[in-house]
Computed example of a mutant assay.
Amino acid sequence: MTKEPIKIFNSLNFSSIPEKLLITIIQNDNLQMSEIQVWEHILKWGHAQHPELPSNVTNYSKDDFNALKITLQQFIPFIKFYNLTSKEFTDKVLPYKKILPKGLYKDLLKSFLSLLEPNSKLNNNLNPHLTNLKTIDSKITTSQHTELISKWINRLEITDKLTS
């Protein structure tokens, strides 16, 4: 189960897996899945328990969020949200912030925001994922090298034109 959990998560009977068994699977430290995949499958399982929920989270009512929150509350402590990238957090978790415990949500938000440089402002001309890289104090790398490496780290599309 831990080496190929995707077989379980993609099975036709996934939505009928008992809650306790699913919790046992996701809390295993040797689970061969990324944390974002675990989160997405747990959401999928939660949605299957409430087929009446709208397909788009932006259309959820307060009652919809509460129903999903109650269903998934036992899973939340076993999801390693701190292992997500900021993009994964923003795209996949933030829309569901109302189902997270408030303390956890605030801690996650602080954690991901603390990754930003203090007192920095985004330059509208730059890609918002990159900080100002013009002042590089190095005899080995140039600002172009630094921008390229930063793009690799942020998994951004690499183009021949470097603008920063």
Rank of each mutant, 00 (worst) to 15 (best):
E88H: 05
K161Q: 03
V93D: 02
F75N: 04
N56A: 05
L12K: 04
F75G: 00
I136R: 00
S138P: 04
E52Y: 00
Q37A: 09
L12W: 01
E4K: 08
Q74V: 09
I149Y: 09
A48R: 04
L31A: 04
F75C: 12
T146M: 13
W39G: 08
D91K: 06
N125S: 07
N28I: 06
D91G: 08
M1K: 00
N83R: 03
L68V: 08
L22P: 04
I99K: 00
A48V: 06
S120I: 03
I70N: 12
T2V: 13
H50E: 04
K98Q: 06
L12G: 00
L156F: 08
T71A: 15
N127W: 08
I36M: 08
I149D: 09
P5H: 07
P101Q: 01
I36C: 09
T142H: 07
T135E: 12
M33A: 14
S164K: 01
L53V: 12
P101R: 03
K102S: 15
P118E: 03
T142V: 05
F81R: 13
L53N: 06
K102E: 14
L53D: 10
T24M: 01
T135C: 01
F112L: 07
S114M: 15
K87D: 08
Q144H: 10
S138W: 03
Y60H: 02
Y82F: 15
M1V: 15
V38A: 06
N10V: 02
E157A: 13
N28S: 08
